[in-house]
């Protein structure tokens, strides 16, 4: 097993990650590196282990073997909030916003890792918490402008449409000023226009906020147009890695998505 690279250019390094639920092997020795500033796509058919991989990285699942290094530091056994504290933010496939709270409060919560959140600042609000709260409010308002959420900031999150909820969740993740942003299907259920918005936000987040992005996505048009590299999973194994267009054209990938016969036909068409 090769030691993970120590260069600080590597944001996330996974090595031989094995994860099994009982007899089901969800991840079979996966390994990949993500370099700083990259948009790395994780694609594959349903049940291929994309979300499981992300859950291992963010500490929700504990891999049976293998290591996860974040900025050169071993985080394999850390709890999710500790990993969040090291600059990782993520969104969920099924939204995980806090119901009953406004859009603004949800995004403010995204800044939790940067805030003093004890009980005493609440007791001495005017001398202890006011300036702190306002400073973070400024940061959040900048983000609200960036994500174009101005007119809904005071709405409770459960009343706004799904597309906007997804955008709020992305804003909450960005509020933490993450060094690694993990997006689990940020465009699921969106129309073309909304998809383009989100794609633009992801690209802007990288440009303006120096974020590295790990993106799980099913829309191949998005993957090929914004990802720098992709890894294709099938049944917990990596079947292709590399530039998006090349990886997706790989015969094994076509087979995993479309099946043996369709792949043969595809080859015939291509030839």
């Amino acid at each position: 097993m090769a030691p993970p690279p120590q260069s600080d250019e590597i944001v996330l390094a996974c090595r031989d990650v094995e994860l099994a639920f009982g007899g089901l092997r969800a991840l079979k020795g996966l390994g990949f590196d993500i370099a700083r500033g990259e948009i790395f796509g994780l694609v594959g058919p349903n049940g291929s282990g994309k979300t499981s991989m992300v859950n291992v990285v963010t500490g929700f699942y504990r891999a049976q073997s293998g290591t996860v290094h974040l900025f050169g530091e071993d985080v394999t056994r850390l709890k999710p909030h500790r990993i969040a504290g090291r600059g990782v933010a993520r969104t969920f496939q099924n939204l995980a916003l806090f119901r009953g709270m406004t859009v603004l409060d949800n995004i403010l919560l995204g800044r939790h890792v940067h805030m003093r959140a004890g009980a005493l600042p609440s007791l001495f609000y005017w001398v202890w918490a006011l300036r702190h709260e306002v400073a973070h409010r400024r940061a959040v308002e900048e983000l609200i402008d960036f994500m174009q959420l101005q007119d809904i900031r005071d709405e409770p999150v459960e009343v706004i449409p799904l597309g906007l909820q997804k955008r709020v969740e992305l804003a909450r993740a960005l509020a933490a000023d993450p060094r690694l942003l993990i997006l689990d299907e940020p465009m699921a259920g969106m129309n073309q226009e909304e998809k383009e918005y989100i794609a633009r936000f992801i690209l802007d987040a990288r440009e303006e906020r120096n974020t590295t992005v790990l993106l799980i996505e099913h829309h191949m048009d998005v993957v090929t147009s914004i990802c720098d590299r992709v890894m294709v999973l099938s049944y917990g194994e990596s079947i292709a890695q590399g530039r998006p267009a090349e990886a997706i054209a790989d015969p094994r990938v076509v087979k995993a998505y479309l099946g043996e016969r369709a792949a043969a036909r595809h080859k015939g068409v291509a030839a």
Binding site: F60, K79, H81, M101, D105
Partner: peptide, 16 residues
């Protein structure tokens, strides 16, 4: 409130 509403989402934004 984050702990009350969704504990896994609270964890992921760094709330212990």
């Amino acid at each position: 409130a984050a702990v009350r509403e969704k504990d896994y989402a609270a964890e992921v934004i760094g709330v212990d």
